[in-house]
Simulated scan of single mutants.
Amino acid sequence: MSNANRHDIHVLNNLIQTAIDSADGYREASTEAADPGHRDLFGRRSYERRQVAEELQSTVRALGGDPADDGSVLAKAQRAFADIKHALMRDEAGMVGAVESAEDALRGRFEKALEDSHISATTRETIRRAFARVSEGSEGLHDLRHSLEGQRDASNPLFPH
């Protein structure tokens, strides 16, 4: 690996870890979701995030580096906490909210990488394309969470009918 590529590889590996974290989170959400439509949605998103990670891994290899192949320890701890919370509350809206928060963090990581003035133009374009795919895939989570929260509120006996 040349010194010229070292920073690009570091940035890309951070994004790979984040994409893998997202894929793992969606996979877990797909197994926990009660609604079959939500399970299907989360399963598709997990697959899409794995594809983004694999494409970024190919770029790291092309730059002469060793690509990250696992998510972050922090994300694993956060998912474990979310699993406990979901198990205690059995709250689909809360689970979707956790996925939405993770997606916000993912988009933030990509935005920060795109603002990095030290990456090459080629790497920036690779990140921009991956970010477009990630952004496209995260649309609708906000609306889904609000819909689920509305259903939860409507089932409350204090909700005005």
Rank of each mutant, 00 (worst) to 15 (best):
G43V: 06
G43W: 03
G43N: 08
R45I: 09
R45F: 06
R45D: 05
S46M: 09
E48G: 12
E48V: 12
E48T: 12
E48L: 14
R49P: 02
R50F: 09
Q51F: 07
V52H: 00
V52F: 00
A53D: 02
E54Y: 10
E54V: 09
E55W: 05
Q57G: 03
S58A: 13
S58C: 11
S58I: 10
V60D: 00
R61Q: 14
L63S: 02
L63Q: 02
L63T: 02
G64E: 02
G65D: 03
G65T: 05
D66E: 10
D66A: 09
P67V: 02
P67L: 01
A68Y: 00
D69Y: 07
D70V: 14
D70S: 14
G71P: 01
S72E: 01
L74K: 10
L74G: 08
L74I: 14
L74S: 11
A75H: 02
A75C: 08
A75Y: 03
A75K: 03
K76A: 07
A77L: 15
A77C: 14
A77T: 11
Q78I: 15
R79T: 06
R79W: 03
A80E: 09
A80K: 07
A80P: 04
A80F: 04
A80V: 11
A82E: 01
D83C: 10
D83T: 11
I84C: 15
K85W: 12
H86K: 12
A87Q: 12
L88Y: 11
M89N: 05
M89H: 06
M89E: 05
R90W: 06
D91N: 04
E92Q: 08
E92S: 04
E92F: 00
A93H: 02
M95A: 06
V96S: 00
V96C: 01
G97A: 09
A98Q: 03
A98M: 05
V99M: 05
V99C: 05
V99E: 02
V99Q: 00
E100F: 07
E100T: 10
E100I: 09
S101C: 11
S101Q: 13
A102F: 01
A105M: 09
G108T: 11
G108H: 07
R109N: 12
R109Q: 13
R109M: 10
F110V: 05
F110H: 01
E111A: 11
E111V: 13
E111T: 13
K112N: 15
D116M: 04
D116R: 01
S117F: 10
S117T: 14
H118S: 14
I119C: 01
I119D: 00
S120F: 04
S120I: 09
T123N: 04
T123Q: 03
R124N: 08
R124M: 06
